[in-house]
Design a protein around this nucleic acid. Structure first.
Length: 579
RNA sequence: GCCCCAGUAGCUCAGUGGAUAGAGCAUCGGUUUCCUAAACCGUGUGUCGUAGGUUCGAUUCCUACCUGGGGCGCCA
């Protein structure tokens, strides 16, 4: 899937037959890479010469002598032990960028083989507060959903909420004790932790309450209609709260995406039976387990995946296995993404392995754990509030918007109140999301208000500001954006060239971001793009320039703005036209 | 004890087997009759955790070790 516009891909395609000819085999890679010494460098002559036992510079010379780069390069130079440094012609870059400008997808090709992708993310617990752990899953999952949809895949969002299990006996009884109206008030206002803690405290203090709670769990599991009705109300109240948070966060999750634990209860018996038929079940200390090779416990003995406890209950592993079956057989998914914290790695690997052993999960279908690290405070420990509790996600978002509002009020007092409030929301929420997405997801990251909300450095506000500045130019020029798409591009100044090269790299970056499920790659790119634009903006006057440079620069601005907006959009971040 | 992840500039972080390892922040200095100065320009900054190995070439791949974090059967 070569990028249509990226000069590096084009050069690679041009050189591939030359390398194949010299090597005498079809798969010799030219190894074309970006270079800080030229526009690109070709490294493939070195390994090829090694294989052939000849001089790398001679191989490089043969590549250069082929002349296939004459149309696109103004300079082709052999350097060092056998590198080939390339300088593209301005007209080549300009022509490529002009074709990108006419493309709504900015050069990104749709996936050649669309897949059905299930993204499992967010997963808060009913009657429990959403906290920063849910932030990571929700924000990363949302970005992956948007990226895969953009690439042309069929995406199914699944919010695997915790709406089933032992705690629900006590939660239902507590709800009944409070009276539904009182409970609804507390839960509706988002005091989920208060509700849960009160129920838990009662459970620890009162044996009478414990008995009621246990009885209630039995009723719940028996699907007693009255109990189910109360349970459903509890779930609904929490969902209302979750949807409020999702709405403020600006993620795509809706009620339609709910796929709670409870939904998999009826499927577990079937999954369990099929494990038995596949001959995978073994009894171990009274429990039914599957031994997956390669997993050991602390005594270095085989570690079982317990699918039915000695008491006869199904486990979360059973639920996860039923879930794999459901996604593959009912939804016909061939890519299962689990956006779940890194500590779950072993559990998920065991589930995946067992699903493979059972023959449910097999190529081309694959399951991938999209693991992520923790959010840390400035003490480098898990982020906690002053009271030592986990930080409520809603409090976090409140503070983000408040801080952004203060900044906007200070920096641009001319904005009217409504616009200012909307801009503050966009900047505050964008800053929180970008701070999360811009770090390699597998690593922990330090949560720092001042840094994420700064208008300098690798932050959402800096990118949003760059976009807003461009939009300001269009307003001043009275330009209709659509008219800019076909304008001829001429590249004279070095800052224009750098910007053009950066813009042409966008499709490659999007592809790499998807391939590694790594949103931070796109973030890094967008930051570099914004920097290149700022440099261009300082050095190259747009409005005052004579034609055809003025039109060309307007077109450069237009493609830059569209790339920033689309790129941020793929991350779930809005780009205001003024701020 | 076993397994997983991380370790790169004072701080926060990028880095695709390629040449001299890069950004941002912070420091210091400069730029505004000019499209948003929320910006830009300049300025130093390194035992890429340690030691081996593979390779023409290793921050990148492999092995061992060190440090930090996490996980390791009937909760989810």
């Amino acid at each position: 899937m070569a990028d249509v516009a990226n000069p590096l891909s084009i050069v690679s395609d041009l050189l591939a037959p030359v390398f194949a000819d010299i090597a005498g085999r079809p798969d010799a890679d030219p190894v074309v890479r970006p270079s800080d010494r030229a526009d690109a460098q070709v490294n493939g002559a070195l390994p090829l010469a090694k294989q052939m036992g000849t001089n790398p510079r001679e191989v490089a010379q043969r590549v250069v002598d082929s002349g296939v780069l004459a149309d696109v390069c103004s300079e082709v130079e052999i350097a060092g032990p056998g590198f080939i440094n390339l300088t593209f012609t301005d007209t080549f870059l300009a022509a490529q960028l002009q074709s990108v400008a006419l493309d709504d997808r900015l050069g990104c090709p749709p996936a050649s083989t669309p897949r059905t992708v299930v993204v499992d993310y967010s997963a808060p617990n009913v009657a429990k507060e959403m906290h920063v752990g849910h932030l990571r899953s929700t924000v990363i999952g949302d970005a992956l959903v948007r990226l895969h949809e953009f690439a042309g895949h069929r995406v199914i969002r699944e919010n695997h909420i915790g709406d089933w299990g032992r705690p629900f006996g006590m939660l239902i009884e507590h709800l009944l004790d409070l009276g539904e109206d009182v409970a609804a008030e507390g839960l509706g206002q988002g005091d989920l932790d208060g509700f849960y803690k009160a129920a838990n405290a009662k459970f620890n203090e009162s044996t009478e309450f414990q008995e009621r709670a246990r009885d209630r769990v039995v009723l719940l599991q028996a699907r007693d209609p009255e109990t189910i009705e109360i349970w459903q109300r509890l779930v609904d109240m929490s969902n209302t709260y979750f949807q409020g948070v999702y709405s403020r966060l600006g993620v795509l999750l809706t009620d339609d995406d709910l796929a709670g634990e409870s939904g998999y209860q009826p499927l577990m018996e079937g999954a369990y039976e099929r494990l038995g038929k596949a001959g995978l079940l073994e009894e171990n200390d009274g429990a039914q387990v599957v031994f997956a090779p390669g997993f050991t416990n602390r005594d270095n003995e085989p570690l079982p995946l317990i699918v039915r406890s000695s008491a006869g209950a199904f486990m979360y592993a059973t639920s996860d296995l039923a879930c794999v079956l459901d996604r593959i057989e009912r939804l016909h998914a061939d890519l299962l993404l689990y956006v779940i914290g890194a500590p779950q790695a072993q559990h998920l690997q065991m589930v995946f392995t067992v699903a493979e052993m059972a023959g449910w999960l097999r190529p081309p279908a694959e399951a991938v754990h999209i693991a992520f690290g923790s959010v840390l405070g400035d003490d480098r420990k898990m982020l906690r509030s002053r009271s030592g509790d986990s930080v409520k996600l809603s409090d976090l978002l409140d503070e983000a918007v408040e801080r952004a509002a203060a900044a906007v009020a200070e920096k641009n007092p001319e904005l009217d109140a409504d616009t200012r409030a909307e801009v503050a929301r966009t900047i505050g929420i964008g800053a929180v999301k970008y701070a999360d997405l811009s770090n390699d997801r597998i690593k922990d990251y330090v949560f720092d208000w001042d840094r994420m909300l700064a208008f300098e450095g690798n932050t959402a506000p800096y990118l949003q500001y760059a976009h807003a500045r461009i939009c300001s130019i269009f307003r001043r020029a009275g330009a209709d954006r659509i008219d800019l798409h076909g304008l001829a591009i001429v590249l004279g100044q070095p800052q224009e060239r750098e910007l053009a090269k950066r813009l042409l790299a966008y499709p490659t970056v999007v592809a790499e971001t998807l391939a590694a499920y790594a949103p931070h790659k796109l973030c890094t790119y967008l930051f570099e793009l914004a920097q290149d634009f700022s440099t261009f903006y300082e050095h190259c006057q747009v409005m005052q320039a004579d034609e055809p440079v003025r039109s060309s620069r307007l077109a450069l601005c237009d493609v830059t703005a569209r790339t920033l907006e689309q790129g941020l959009g793929l991350l779930g971040i809005d780009a205001p036209e003024a701020m």
